[in-house]
């Protein structure tokens, strides 16, 4: 904008032969120079882990001495490690969060999509947990879940519980208590995405359906939901992968306890690496989790019919 287009200079340039957009050695070098810092970091911290991580899964490695090839030993050990299986089971159980968080986020997005006074306040309020660190969120909910704390107060007031329980210290409730925190923190995020999806649906479609005598439910089922399908694909994919990889809330709130009831697959990876310094075994577990999340991604893709709005 700040650079004026001068006709005479363009003519001069033509005399000299072409513009800078041409593919020359010099321009190629310039292009790569622009990308250099980014590409170096990308290779070191993104590409290298994919390859080296896969390699490490077949080695014994403790960071200090070089990795030592052990073949499939790590995987053999994993399959006989009850802790790994229980971690995997808990991670898969965690996928329960996905349909709930997606359903609630769609509902909330439809609510805050209404043209009402003060709706901006609600959108902002629901987003505050999203921008808060898991360090803070985890601590806050650890306090909220205390036996004499607000959560127990509400559950008892609603008649859902006879006597107070320390929900995070009970092996039967701890995982669900942590799931609620994931839900609480994530709804605002998906709400924003669904809101964008809703606003992309042509309002004429819904109006026409209403004129033709469609009920609210019919409009939602036949117009809103199909229109949201691409968003649903992306969101459920994101939340399935983060459910399988759930870690930070566990790390802050329960550290896998009580009695291993919140011990998840990635927590296993973490403690194998940074507590036991068995990096090879941790990498093998990581590889298995990666394969599982790819499989779930594909299932998700099929379930939402590839996210096509017309399907």
């Amino acid at each position: 904008m700040t650079i004026p287009t001068r006709r005479e200079s363009r003519r001069e340039q033509h005399k000299r032969g072409g513009t800078g957009a041409q593919v020359t050695v010099r321009n190629t070098l310039i292009a790569y120079a622009f990308m250099l810092p980014f590409l170096i970091l990308l290779v070191v911290y993104h590409t290298w882990p994919v390859f080296f991580g896969t390699y490490l899964a077949f080695t014994k490695y403790n960071v200090i001495s070089p990795p030592e090839w052990v073949g499939l030993d790590n995987f053999r050990e994993l399959t006989s490690d009850e802790q790994f299986w229980s971690g995997l089971r808990n991670s898969l159980k965690y996928i329960l969060v996905v349909p709930i968080i997606q359903g609630l986020s769609i509902a909330v997005a439809m609510l805050v999509n209404r043209p009402m006074k003060g709706i901006g306040f609600f959108r902002t309020a629901y987003y505050v947990p999203v921008v808060t660190s898991f360090a803070v969120v985890g601590l806050i909910w650890t306090w909220m879940y205390q036996q004499e704390g607000p959560v127990n107060f509400v559950l008892q007031a609603l008649g859902l519980m006879k006597e107070p329980h320390s929900l995070l210290n009970n092996p039967f409730t701890a995982l669900y208590a942590v799931m609620f925190v994931t839900l609480w923190k994530g709804i605002g995020y998906y709400m924003v995405l669904y809101l964008a999806g809703l606003q992309a649906i042509a309002p004429e479609l819904e109006e026409a359906a209403v004129i033709d005598g469609a009920t609210r439910l019919q409009v939602f089922w036949n117009i809103t939901l199909p229109g949201l399908r691409p968003t649903i694909l992306v969101c459920s994919l994101l939340s399935t992968i983060s459910a399988i990889k759930v870690f930070e809330e566990i790390y802050v709130m329960t550290s896998g306890g009580p009695a291993g009831s919140t011990y998840t697959a990635l927590f296993y990876t973490y403690s194998r690496a940074f507590v036991d310094f068995k990096f090879g075994q941790a990498a093998a577990a990581g590889l298995i989790i990666a394969v599982i999340s790819i499989l779930f991604g594909l299932v998700n893709f099929r379930l939402t019919r590839g996210g096509r709005a017309d399907a």
């Binding site: 957009a21 321009n27 292009a31 993104h46 882990p49 896969t54 899964a57 992968i241 990096f279 941790a282």
Partner: peptide, 29 residues
């Protein structure tokens, strides 16, 4: 800009984004 390898780099980065990388923490350490 037009330069050789542009599409290759672009798609390589795109692939990297969808590739799950659970060993990232370990290798980066």
């Amino acid at each position: 800009m037009r330069f050789p390898g542009r599409d290759l780099i672009f798609y390589a980065i795109l692939t990297l984004m969808v590739l799950p990388n659970e060993a990232g923490l370990i290798v980066n350490y």
